[in-house]
């Protein structure tokens, strides 16, 4: 374990040096991501200039929801996104070989090479939106709510990871799988909206088979509904933990199966 921490510290240092040597590009990227987020906020603003409620969600609860989605997505993207999306290229060119020979778990090596500092900045912006929404709602969450919220952020980020990593792993079967990365963004588009709009089979599939709806909705509900009893909070936390555990396990199995049929590309 301590060896992994040591390796990660070195990788982190390298990423920071890299980011700081291309400052202009780093700044422009941060701006691009801020713009995307502000675009979503604009959508909420436009929507709620015509209506008061979506299901049982009011405007500021929805702002807290998209803020929470931003926090989780950007946190995951800071740690893993760049690396996982490069997997198809590693497989296609055979560069994966080098990573497989390292005295470290290959899934760890593939997932953590580069850290995105710009994403961390955007995590902060997401948090600021959540804070402002809570202020507008005049809610001061209890320590229990904050604790559960933080746990949900980590569980949510691991579901993000599982879905993107599984999609990328399909490249062992389909070469030229760049289209699969769009699938990640398409799926999580669903998770930004209030859960009460979803019904029937759609709701079931995207809550319990591909659990994208749960990821931001559960923490946002925990934080913005002050009447929540501790037992309710515990129940939703358990549901999210279960979803995260199954996703991670499934991803690991898929990765192991994929590695078995990997026959390298070059050499």
């Amino acid at each position: 374990m301590s060896r992994y921490l040591k390796v990660y510290a070195i990788l982190l240092r390298n990423s920071l040096i890299r980011d700081m040597s291309f400052k202009a590009n780093f700044l422009l990227w941060s701006v691009v991501e801020v713009l995307w987020f502000l675009g979503q906020a604009l959508f909420v603003e436009v929507l709620f200039s015509h209506i008061d409620y979506i299901g049982d969600w009011n405007k500021w609860q929805v702002v807290a929801l998209i803020g929470t989605h931003q926090v989780i997505a950007q946190l995951f993207q800071a740690v893993c996104y760049m690396n996982v999306t490069q997997l198809p290229e590693l497989v296609r060119t055979g560069k994966l070989d080098v990573l497989l020979t390292l005295p470290i778990d290959p899934q760890f090596a593939v997932s953590t090479k580069q850290f995105g500092l710009d994403n961390l900045l955007n995590t902060g912006i997401g948090l600021a939106f959540v804070g402002y929404a809570l202020h507008q709602l005049s809610i001061i969450p209890s320590p229990i709510q904050w604790g559960a919220y933080s746990a949900c952020i980590l569980l949510g980020a691991s579901i993000h990871y599982s879905i993107l990593f599984s999609l990328s792993t399909l490249c062992f079967w389909i070469i030229r799988a760049q289209g699969l990365v769009y699938g990640y963004f398409n799926l999580f588009n669903i998770g930004r909206y209030p859960d009460s709009v979803y019904t029937g089979a759609f709701r079931f599939v995207f809550s319990w088979i591909i659990p994208v709806i749960l990821v931001a909705n559960i923490p946002a509900r925990i934080l913005t509904q002050p009447s929540k009893a501790p037992s309710d909070i515990l129940a939703s936390l358990a549901a999210l933990s279960f979803a995260a555990f199954v996703s991670l396990l499934g991803t690991r199995l898929l990765w192991k199966t994929a590695l078995k049929r990997y026959a390298s590309a070059s050499s």
Binding site: L47, Y53, I54, G179, G183, Y193, Y198
Partner: peptide, 29 residues
């Protein structure tokens, strides 16, 4: 790139239906 295209458009169905469901909830209320 044919599989890429087909996959991409298939994945596109999910957000389209999410949008449709959001507006359904909005218009019903």
């Amino acid at each position: 790139y044919r599989w890429n295209f087909v996959l991409r458009s298939l994945f596109g169905i999910a957000p389209l239906f999410a949008t449709v469901l959001v507006w359904k909830a909005v218009c019903e209320a």
